[in-house]
């Protein structure tokens, strides 16, 4: 690990000020990803701003019936929170599908969004990687790419976003509240992360110095019919090869609203509202689910070792939606 200095921030404003006062400063909260990357020499901040003492640790109901998750609530406290379990069981289940109990006790909700890819070449400083070193090339495109993206890739990067939680947040249409040098703003989950394009070094659309203060969930949590299906190489404590967050609002067998977000297939949680709209007013059948799956996978491209995902993903989508349907019939 490289040398760095450290300060502990007591307010959001001082945290933002500290970031601006250094060349390559980073925030640290749970630390589960950034410290790992610092040990690997992938991240080399000159300064760390400890934000764990900021007053962002509450889960509270919003006036519109939604739920606000403070950025510093841990993943474990979120997943086991009674309101989250009752009203947003999809989120609870998704969080518990990720990492280990130890890591979930450390990792924060805000920090989860900032996890960096687990692409082997991003971690291996001996190999070219456009995300780690812009312009150096992508080793994964012609390399070992079993875990890599099949959707929204570019000639510069085929990395995936590793978060489970972000996939459920995309399906639930969460809003991310941020503070920065220019004040506060909110981003829809769909606008938070980005595709690699020709700037894969950027994982998200935040400006320099901005900090996430909360994740706001809308009132509708799809608590009756949902599923998070995570397919991976071992049954616990592994990243997704393909994952599906599915949520349905049913009236008998008829679908009133559907949400489907995918993990493990792109540089960000993959969602297509126009594909979901195909299910509106339709019967909850495998045939209809397959149509949505095909629409979601449109344009998918394999790179060799990950080509199996092009068929695995639609099958996972159908299965996740069938399981969501069978949960509870109104």
């Amino acid at each position: 690990m490289n040398s760095f200095t450290y300060t502990r921030a007591e307010t959001v404003d001082t945290a933002i000020g500290e970031i601006k006062a250094h060349h390559t400063a980073k925030f640290i909260a749970g630390g589960t990803n950034i410290l790992d990357l610092m040990k690997e020499n992938v991240e080399r901040p000159d300064h760390l701003v400890d934000i764990t003492r900021l007053p962002l640790k509450q889960i509270e109901t919003l006036p519109d019936g939604g739920l606000r998750l403070g950025a510093l609530v841990t993943n474990a406290d979120t997943a086991y929170h009674p309101e989250v379990q009752k009203r947003y069981p999809l989120l609870s289940k998704t969080i518990l599908a990720g990492a280990s109990a130890q890591l979930r006790n450390m990792a924060t909700d805000g920090g989860n969004l900032f996890q960096r890819t687990r692409c082997y070449y991003f971690y291996d400083t001996a190999t070219p990687c456009n995300k780690r070193e812009p312009g150096s090339g992508c080793s994964a495109i012609n390399g070992f790419n079993r875990i890599h993206a099949i959707l929204g890739t570019s000639e510069h990067c085929i990395a995936t976003h590793p978060s489970d939680m972000a996939v459920a947040l995309a399906a639930l249409e969460a809003t991310i509240r941020v503070s920065g040098p220019n004040g506060e703003r909110t981003l829809a989950m769909a606008d938070f992360h980005r595709l690699p394009g020709d700037k894969p070094q950027y994982d998200n659309n935040l400006e320099a110095g901005e900090i996430v203060t909360s994740i706001d969930l809308p009132a509708n949590g799809f608590a009756n019919n949902y599923n998070y299906l995570k397919l991976r190489d071992r049954s616990s404590y592994a990243f997704a090869l393909v994952s599906v967050a599915a949520a349905l609002e049913l009236e008998g067998d008829t679908i009133r609203e559907a949400r489907v977000a995918l993990g493990g297939v792109a540089h960000m949680p993959w969602r297509k509202p126009e594909a979901e709209a195909l299910l509106k007013g339709q019967k909850a059948t495998k045939e209809n689910f397959r149509k949505v799956a095909e629409a979601l996978l449109e344009g998918a491209k394999g790179f060799g070792a990950n080509t199996f995902k092009i068929e695995l993903a639609p099958r996972a989508i159908v299965r996740a939606l069938v399981m969501a349907t069978e949960m509870k019939k109104k």
């Binding site: 502990r8 790992d36 400890d50 130890q102 890591l103 450390m106």
Partner: peptide, 25 residues
Amino acid sequence: HGQCGACTVLVDGKRINSCLSLAVM
């Protein structure tokens, strides 16, 4: 690197990976 759990300790009664935590924090 937080992958094996051999470094697990309890902080305020909760288990964490001590290898992925700065002492000053």
